[in-house]
Amino acid sequence: MPRRDDGASREVVLRLLAGFGVEVGGEEVSLPGSAQRVVAFVALHERPVLRPYVAGMLWLDWPETRAAGNLRSALWRIQRHAPALVAADPHMLRLAPCVRVDLREAESLARSELAGRSSGVPRQSLTLDLLPDWYDDWVLLERERFRQLRLRALESRCTRLTAAGRLDEALEAGLLALAGEPLRESAHRALVRLHLAEGNAAEAVRQFRLCRRLLLEQLGVEPSPLMLDLVAGLDARSTRG
């Protein structure tokens, strides 16, 4: 009699960037919304979490017994569709150790960039938001934490590659950081430094003007002294636009 394939021997991938998704053995697995929320909540905690805590956080307005029942139902659906995804015992839940999570891989890449260890092309993961269409408080906090990490990593890459003379790659990283947050002055500063390193004073001024206009129009503030110091050596008239 053939043995049932429970997915344990196949690669399991959990996607949390740009939307929720699960792949088992290269095939997409569809999970109901309640099951998705349980998987995502557990995945965002690096340590095992208590079942009552998960139930209470995901079903805030439900009585405790109903919330626990909803959690059991969601876990049953997860076990049915992707049994190798969540490890559960009577008290705790955790993501199975074999599961690859795109968020964790992106965080590792970002930290490598910040430490100056990465030399490859930045992957798309550093341009993606965590679960962008989810608005639970526990998602919003993690989304902002990861957003700050990935933008700082891209800026760090831009600065490091500028210093190394790898200006094309530096430009790509700087523009990706700016696309992630056009009002982020530190990304504008990284690009101004790059243009000055190339000897392109006009491009540096253009970048400064763009930064100044965005900050004034959107926030009502002038660029910081850090930015002004960068362009201090340029023609004063050219930086007033």
Rank of each mutant, 00 (worst) to 15 (best):
A74F: 09
A68W: 10
V38I: 12
V29R: 01
L95E: 02
E105F: 05
V99R: 00
R94I: 08
W76I: 06
R80M: 13
N70G: 01
E113A: 07
Q148D: 10
L95N: 01
A110D: 03
T127Q: 04
M57K: 10
R117V: 09
L103Q: 05
G165M: 08
R147I: 09
L140D: 12
E155I: 08
P52N: 07
G165C: 02
A88P: 03
Q79K: 08
Y135H: 11
Q124K: 09
A35D: 10
E46W: 08
H45A: 11
W134G: 03
C98K: 12
V99I: 06
P48W: 08
P90I: 15
L131D: 03
P83C: 13
R66M: 05
L109Q: 14
P48F: 10
R37K: 14
Q148F: 12
H91L: 15
F146R: 09
L154Q: 03
A87V: 06
R104V: 15
V39E: 00
P90M: 12
D133F: 06
M57V: 14
D133T: 08
E142G: 04
W134A: 07
S34R: 13
A96H: 07
L58M: 06
R145G: 10
N70K: 06
L141M: 11
W138A: 15
A163L: 10
R47S: 13
Q148R: 13
V38G: 00
P132L: 11
V139H: 01
C98T: 09
D61N: 05
A43M: 06
L151A: 05
D137C: 03
P32N: 07
D102S: 07
A74Q: 10
A110F: 03
R150T: 03
A82E: 11
R72F: 03
A96V: 08
L130D: 06
R111I: 07
L151V: 07
L31H: 01
R104Q: 09
L75F: 03
L149Y: 02
Q36G: 02
S30K: 08
R51N: 14
L140V: 15
S112T: 07
G116L: 11
L71A: 11
E64S: 14
A164R: 15
S118T: 14
P90S: 14
A88F: 02
T65V: 04
A164Q: 14
V101W: 01
R72E: 12
W134K: 05
E105A: 13
G33I: 14
Y53E: 06
G33M: 12
M92D: 04
R152S: 08
A55N: 06
L109R: 13
W134L: 05
S34D: 12
L126R: 01
V42M: 02
L154R: 05
S34I: 06
P63M: 07
D89F: 11
R72L: 09
A74D: 12
